[in-house]
Amino acid sequence: GPVASEESYHWQIQSNLNAGEPGYVAVEKKFVELAEEMSGGRITFDLHPVGALFPISEGLEAVSTGLAQMAVLTGGYYSGKMGPIANLEMGVPGSLRTPMERYNFFYKKGFIDLAREAYAEQGVFYLGPQFSPPWDMMSKKPITGMEDFEGLKVRAFGIEAKWYEKMGASATFLDGGEIYSALATGVVDAARWASPSGNMNNSFHEVAKYYMQPSPMPVPNNFFAVNMSAWKELPDDLKAILEEAAIAASFEYLAISALEDAKAMQDMQAAGVEVSRIPPEEWRKMEAIARDLWQDYAEADAYAKRGVEMLNAYLEELGR
């Protein structure tokens, strides 16, 4: 690429979260401010909250057309555009369990290269994942085993919806704005949403008093999408800065969340929320069901096939 120059760049970024939420703050502090500082101001950003510039469902379109030079997006929204590789990129249930496993999978086992190949076809440079705290389930009845899913009305979508349905639940998709009222009146019994602080921000603890553990989505991630030609214009040193800032923002998000989630969990418990725990042997059986579901992705296309093979190989390395 071009060598370092004095040319400067100004980008618009849309976050996948509201201003002030941990993942937004992480991008603000450890991506925007860090990259501005490391580049000596040669690249600067305007950070916007989710939905400010475009609906997240059109994220790939928005970034590839240059409406925004960059955005934090969530892969699950784009599986209808690019197949199950988008789900594998976001993280699938019954696979990896810790952020470090996820980091190694992307950066040491080469999954990031596969993601870059797949997203390049959408006109988007996949800068890197932004690891997220768990996406948890809150419910109106305790869930302590597979049998509790029988007849349960769950707000979920994608592979998770199929997973819960396999265990006897019925899955409904509701807009984010409808979940609170739907839980309050019993249109759904359970909803899979965010980590404790995110769930509390949505006031779900007021209407769903049980918090399922372990998390169905223990290590999901969003990702940094960059407009392809904006990326190619950058000199190599700025590219390197952005790649490292993305990693820094990832771990910052996990770190801030760990603090806020611990507090939110206690606050919710003080407000009457109970943790309902699924025992390990039962959870392993449930994970096996989920794993069968994403194994089928291999049939879909070449990207998904490579993704499933990489994930299986890594799980084998981990002894699972």
Binding site: E61, G76, S79, G80, K81, F157, A161, K162, F173
Partner: peptide, 21 residues
Amino acid sequence: WLGGELALRSIAIDERSATGA
């Protein structure tokens, strides 16, 4: 113009809904 491009790209990749099954 841009809605047309949006639609054409969607047709080209046979875009499917991702929220439901």
